[in-house]
Computed example of a mutant assay.
Amino acid sequence: MRIFVTHILPEHLVAKYRLSFAACNFSRNLMSGGGFDKVYSIMPLFISGRMEEFEDSNNELIYSSMRHYGGLVAKLAVFIEQIKVFRHINRHDTVWLYNVSVLNVLLILLLKLCKPKVGVYAIELDFTPPTRKLCAMSLYLYLLNHIDGVIKLADSPLFTCENSVCLAGVTPDNGVEAPIIRKPCLEFLLSGVLQPDISSLPMALEAFAQVSDCRLHITGNSDSKQLQEYVQKYPNIIYHGVLSSDAYMDLLHSVTFQLSLRNPDWKDNQCNFPSKIIEALLHNRIIISTIHYLQIERIEYIETERSVEGFVKTLQQIRSMCDEELMDYANQSELVKKNFNPDVWNEWMTKIEHKSKK
């Protein structure tokens, strides 16, 4: 039996419990291929109190009553939950983990010590590099590099497990076709986490202030005074706040360009791959990125410098390009599906499992 241990809730509960939409979408996309016999969910540490009941035949929530009390007791519940999952695992099962973290570290140790025939594997989506040798992240990294196999979204030199493969993401197996771009327009989207090292928001604001015929749409949670000042001063900069899934998709389909302006020198950005890139490519948008990604080397995207001057230059170049040139970067959903669909993931999981047993 192949088991997936993750943290996912039905779509209508994701916002209520402040789970990551990107994380839940990833798990849901991967599960859509039918590659797992059983899925268990353990909630992040910040969730406490009574959980709203739901029925989901594809996902069993493991939720200890200790969480009802809040505080330290609720945080300790995560270890009780891992013990409960451990009891459900038989000695010849294989277990795939969503990241190596506090949500499964005890489970890994229990399996290695008490059920050594169980194959333990991880899907490492994002990792925060340790800042010192003796810390929790150092332990997670050690375990990640010493379990039976890994699928990683970034090929960081920190990840040394030899039985591994690098995949940029997973596309859903739902048969839904995204609208294609027929005529590109100068509409750009910056979305997600609006922290400077992740979104380069200050750089984007200043660049679009200088290129007034390019329109910047921004979504996500932000209390930036600079953002509010630019929105009030420049009519081509529009802040939409936090949007529902449907409203976000409507906005995504109205723009041509998705911005991914991460700081290439920040170590955290070397240990993950932006889910927004795969999502936007799947929806036929054109990607502009400050990082060169080997994971998507067969896909066309526009690279830019991470500086106001360099980004302004890129915007000016885009503005001067004819539609035929821009369309070379658009409408790549079929290629993305071919490279990152759940069947591809299931094939790699099987290869990794077989290799670990030789």
Rank of each mutant, 00 (worst) to 15 (best):
Q82M: 13
R91P: 14
G49M: 09
F46K: 09
N90K: 15
A74I: 06
G33F: 07
A15H: 12
W96V: 00
E55P: 02
E81A: 03
D93H: 10
N90A: 14
E81T: 03
R91G: 04
G35W: 03
Y63E: 02
L30N: 01
M66R: 13
K75M: 10
M51V: 06
F79L: 14
K16Q: 14
Y17P: 05
A74G: 12
V78A: 02
L97T: 08
F79V: 09
D37T: 07
M43L: 15
K84Q: 05
G34C: 12
S57F: 07
F26M: 06
E81M: 04
E60N: 15
L19S: 02
T94P: 00
D56H: 11
E55I: 03
L30A: 03
N90S: 14
L72E: 12
D93Y: 07
I47D: 01
P44W: 10
S20H: 08
S64I: 11
V95S: 05
L97Y: 14
Y63C: 00
D93T: 08
D37R: 05
M31T: 00
N59M: 00
S20W: 02
I80K: 04
R50T: 05
F54P: 04
M51T: 02
C24E: 02
V95T: 09
H92F: 13
G34M: 13
M43K: 01
V100A: 00
I89N: 02
Y63N: 03
F86G: 05
S41F: 03
V39E: 05
E53I: 08
K38Y: 05
H88T: 13
N29G: 04
L19Y: 01
A77E: 00
E55G: 03
G70Q: 11
L61C: 10
E52K: 00
D93M: 13
V39H: 04
C24L: 08
I89W: 01
H68V: 05
I42T: 04
F79K: 10
R28K: 12
F86Y: 15
R18E: 10
V73Q: 15
K84P: 00
L72A: 07
Y69I: 08
I42S: 04
A15M: 05
H92Q: 15
L72D: 11
G34A: 08
F86H: 12
P44K: 04
L45N: 05
